[in-house]
Amino acid sequence: MSGNGNAAATAEENSPKMRVIRVGTRKSQLARIQTDSVVATLKASYPGLQFEIIAMSTTGDKILDTALSKIGEKSLFTKELEHALEKNEVDLVVHSLKDLPTVLPPGFTIGAICKRENPHDAVVFHPKFVGKTLETLPEKSVVGTSSLRRAAQLQRKFPHLEFRSIRGNLNTRLRKLDEQQEFSAIILATAGLQRMGWHNRVGQILHPEECMYAVGQGALGVEVRAKDQDILDLVGVLHDPETLLRCIAERAFLRHLEGGCSVPVAVHTAMKDGQLYLTGGVWSLDGSDSIQETMQATIHVPAQHEDGPEDDPQLVGITARNIPRGPQLAAQNLGISLANLLLSKGAKNILDVARQLNDAH
């Protein structure tokens, strides 16, 4: 009898209710805020589980004197976190989706994509230029951005401005803007500013005609071990179906173009009346040469937790077992079709030249 009692006690200790789920994140304040929001949602869904947040620095956090596009290494903000995932030191990792490459290392998958916040870019102005827009900034004003995508589009749109690289986390960039006289304004992701509670610093939100956004911008991705079915089931509740389908289309477009950090590629997606609209573009580094096109596809946005595919093969690095396969494939095909259209119009040449120029500098 006593033996059975011990077995029952052991089973209770090993039951999922007692389990601590370890969540990996970057150390920056924004990353911690984003991770806290994901953990809060998981806690609400699984009140019996405990969650421990483990923060670590990544290569991208450490190399702050070089433009991201020049470092010449993929997975700048993800490699150390993936290493911890691989060694079973954490069970899942919360990322900004735009930091996750469209091809993940073997053994990993994006197990959830959370509801997207505003994906557009924002302009934050130096205190002396508050009330201005990019259009009304004085001639030769210097605007800071760490992104080739932003610089290429904005140089084309605002030729009277000069664009220079600015690195560091959000706090560091804002301090550089406010305390030094080098920059009249800087460009940042609206979602990051909003998550930090800095709505009052948003001086201008850039519309798609001015600057399309990065693939996955404004959404959070939760990376897990691809074979860890328990954790895949656990994080599945975080999937937002519309965000998922938009981001599958965007990531398929980028992957098929073979774009990345070192080339200016941008997108804009919208879901309306059962249609998914995808606009994508590529630019030369100075913005003088560009190709942009829009395509659409009829896609039914499923309700969360309709029964999805059981075999769960990944699409552009994403596993969404609780979302039907048909809409996911339709979104992926839309991204591939748009990429093929741009490639047929000469996108590869623009991107190759951009890559060579970026590598040469």
Rank of each mutant, 00 (worst) to 15 (best):
P119C: 11
L342I: 07
G287T: 00
H120G: 09
G131W: 12
N358Y: 14
V130R: 14
R164V: 09
N358K: 15
I63K: 05
E310Q: 15
E293D: 14
K140M: 10
E209D: 09
H120R: 13
S165K: 05
T145H: 04
I63F: 12
D65V: 09
P47Y: 06
G218R: 02
V267P: 03
V353D: 14
P324L: 10
Q328M: 15
T78Y: 06
I323K: 03
T279Q: 08
P313A: 14
N340P: 02
I323H: 07
R201H: 02
Q328W: 14
K70F: 10
G287H: 05
V103T: 15
N88R: 11
C211L: 11
L42S: 01
T279C: 03
V123P: 06
A252V: 15
S75I: 07
A339T: 13
K140C: 10
G203S: 14
K74T: 07
D240N: 15
Q155V: 10
T243I: 08
L81M: 08
Q155H: 13
G216E: 00
L193N: 06
T78P: 02
G259F: 12
I248R: 05
D307Q: 04
Q180D: 08
E179P: 06
V143Q: 04
L81W: 09
F77K: 00
P302V: 14
N333Y: 03
I63D: 00
G346Y: 00
F108Y: 13
S75K: 15
L206E: 01
F51G: 09
R175K: 13
H256L: 09
D121F: 01
P119V: 10
Y277F: 14
K79Y: 12
S284N: 09
S37E: 10
P105Q: 10
G197N: 04
G317Y: 07
Q356M: 00
L170P: 00
N340T: 10
Q181F: 11
G221I: 13
S75H: 07
L64W: 15
T243M: 00
A55G: 08
C114N: 10
P324Q: 09
N200F: 15
R116E: 05
E310Y: 01
S75P: 12
L42Q: 00
T145Q: 04
A112L: 08
V103H: 00
A152E: 05
S37C: 11
L148W: 06
V103M: 11
R255K: 06
T58F: 03
R225F: 05
E210V: 11
F125V: 09
V103C: 15
F125P: 12
L137T: 04
E117N: 05
L343R: 14
G317W: 12
W198E: 13
L92P: 02
D91C: 05
L104M: 14
V215P: 07
G317V: 06
T136H: 13
L137E: 03
Q180I: 04
G197Q: 01
G144A: 11
L81G: 08
Q50W: 00
D312E: 10
A191K: 05
E162R: 12
T298R: 13
C261F: 05
L343M: 15
E73G: 06
K157I: 10
M196G: 09
S37Y: 05
D233S: 11
H126F: 07
L68T: 06
R150E: 02
K227I: 06
G326L: 05
D178L: 11
L232T: 12
K348L: 14
K98T: 02
G72P: 14
K79R: 11
A191T: 09
